[in-house]
Design a binder for these strands. Structure first.
Lengths: 113, 113
DNA sequence: ATCATAGTTAGCCACATGGCTAAGTATGAT
DNA sequence: ATCATACTTAGCCATGTGGCTAACTATGAT
């Protein structure tokens, strides 16, 4: 249960679809209305709408409606938690390498006796 | 179709589950057999096995069997494509932000409420 | 040879996901 | 007032996902 119990799960899930990543990349060039976003995907509007909803619920994009046009824009800081998690993982791994290193050193010193 | 048509999709999908991220974090401390990995999750063995399969198919871990024990270990460089993608996006997104498009800012402020 | 341990495989279940069509709503143009 | 545009909602379908139990295999210990 509570499959997406954190921002991180929502974010990673949103990013796991190629269509959604393509939408993000397109939006990086600037805001765009839904129909314009849908065009290059080859998908129907409702399908694209749902992809956009996933992106919005993950906080990766923000939308606003002006007249009958809904404009979508990227939320640049939304990727921060992903970066943080990646950095943490790297740090843990490196500290493990350090420990392994000192362990090896210890053994080598032991043998040097 | 071809939902996970790239490494990136496989990776993001693998990372989108809290249990799998927890497994990775545990494995960052060093290799471990399946049963030991399963213990803290509160999940049954077959369930954990499948999570491990997803991680392995994404290339995030590697496993090997010694006797009846299967040992799982992290593949640290597997996260590289994710980092790369993230860096690319950040570069695009930030250069976009540098232009300070007032329309984007307006939407972001709207959503911040 | 027997038993315990550590996976492994098969299969069931409820729900989520990604695609669609069809029909509805709201707004700009004529 | 009418019509086209731009979503929006509802709902169908096939497949995927994450959990489980039960039963099986393989290996180490006695």
């Amino acid at each position: 249960m509570a499959k997406y119990d954190s921002d991180l799960s929502l974010l990673f899930h949103a990013l796991s679809d190629p269509t959604r990543r393509a939408l993000l990349t397109r939006l990086a060039a600037g805001p765009a209305p839904v129909t314009e976003l849908a065009a290059p995907t080859g998908l129907r509007l409702p399908t694209v709408m749902r992809h956009l909803s996933v992106l919005e619920e993950a906080g990766l994009i923000a939308t606003s409606k002006d007249g009958r046009v809904r404009s979508c824009a990227i939320v640049p800081e939304a990727l921060a938690p992903v970066r943080t998690w990646l950095d943490e993982q790297r740090n843990i791994w490196e500290s493990r390498l350090d420990r392994l290193d000192s362990y090896v050193m210890k053994i080598m010193e032991e043998r040097a006796k």
